[in-house]
């Protein structure tokens, strides 16, 4: 699964430009799902049809992971060919200094900064620029509105992995792997790879409207409380996938939360409950779709979220796949 994770995290896909990620996913799930379609906003919706099983009531289940990643967008080009930019999604300016970014066509740029008035000044995005190495404006092929993403290859640290865009390519990888490993299910399972999560859960909103699920589970990352002087939080890396209770945007459906926890216990898989003070996931948008959806979240504990070097534990990832396969093989209990 590490190959798949590497391929997905290294793909280019800031919000609104998820094409490369979508093509990669299509390639990996073809043959493992009954049908696939791409909707008006670019969400990839893949259905694995259920096989009737006696004694199990079939339900329509939506799994969601978002394909997009945070990035930057060119807002202005100056006379010398330096590119001013704005963030796409929640970008911390501290992580930009010294970073390299890549455009859709493969052009690479480095991020520079105006000389600060005070040496310890907190960097502001308005005071930064991208230098793509163009000698002048005339030789520059970029235009206002072009987007770039972090450039950073995955590093396999053994038990743990570090890469850009684990948020939420790790969720995409888990969904792909689940689609591959899940041989049969009594339910109609929609694997939905959403767009534009980082700019406001937009793909989840429209895809949920189209899918009309009974139950939904978003697979996304969560932060942890296990690094030096972190904000107090009970989630740590390697202690199992996290089952969301609450984040800033939603309260998970208690039935879905318990269904996940009971399944983990039945399968003997480690898990932890998660209460996240900041951030939210696609499940927030799905929950209030139409007349309401029982929605929950399976989270992968991730350190250094929204930096070019996020970190996950490989066991958590594998256990998340096992949990989802187990969950989808049995009856829905909520």
């Amino acid at each position: 699964m590490k190959e798949l994770i590497k391929e997905l995290t290294e793909a280019y896909g800031p919000s609104g430009n998820e094409d490369a990620v979508r093509e990669t996913i299509k390639r990996h799930i073809a043959g493992h799902v009954s049908e696939m379609r791409v909707d008006a906003l670019g969400n990839l919706i893949a259905l694995k049809k259920g096989q009737p099983q006696s004694g199990i009531e079939p339900r329509k289940i939506m799994l969601a992971a978002h394909m997009d990643e945070i990035g930057v967008i060119v807002s202005q080009i100056d006379e010398k060919g330096f590119l001013r930019f704005a963030p796409v999604g929640g970008v911390n300016p501290l992580t930009l200094l010294g970073s390299r970014v890549i455009f859709a066509d493969g052009m690479i740029g480095v991020i520079g900064r105006e000389r600060p008035e005070k040496p310890d000044e907190f960097p502001k995005i308005e005071k930064m620029f991208i230098d793509v190495g163009a000698p002048d404006k005339e030789h520059l092929t970029r235009k206002v509105g072009d987007m770039a993403a972090f450039l950073r290859p995955l590093a396999d640290l053994g038990q743990r992995l570090t890469a850009k865009a684990f948020d939420d390519r790790i969720g995409c990888a888990i969904l792909v792997q689940t689609a591959q490993e899940l041989e049969t299910t009594p339910h109609d399972v929609y694997f939905v790879f959403t767009v534009q999560e980082e700019v406001g859960l937009r793909g989840a909103l429209t895809s949920a409207f189209g899918v009309e699920p009974d139950v939904a589970i978003a697979v996304d990352i969560t932060t942890t409380g296990d690094t030096p002087e972190a904000y107090p939080m009970a989630v740590s890396l390697g202690a199992g996938p996290a089952i969301k209770v609450k984040d800033r945007g939603m309260l998970a459906h208690p039935g879905v939360k318990n269904w996940l926890a009971e399944t983990a216990e039945r399968l003997g898989l480690p898990y932890q409950f998660e209460v996240l003070e900041a951030g939210t996931t696609d499940a927030m948008a799905i929950q209030t779709s139409r007349a309401g959806v029982a929605a929950g979240v399976l989270s992968i504990p991730t350190r250094y979220a929204h930096t070019p070097s996020e970190m996950v534990d490989y066991n958590d990832v594998q256990n998340a796949v096992k949990l989802l396969v187990g969950l989808l093989s049995g009856p829905v209990k909520i």
Partner: peptide, 16 residues
Amino acid sequence: LLVTKLEKGFVRFSTV
């Protein structure tokens, strides 16, 4: 409120 963490016999919490 919602329990976020147990610490040394005390309960940490978040708001709803």
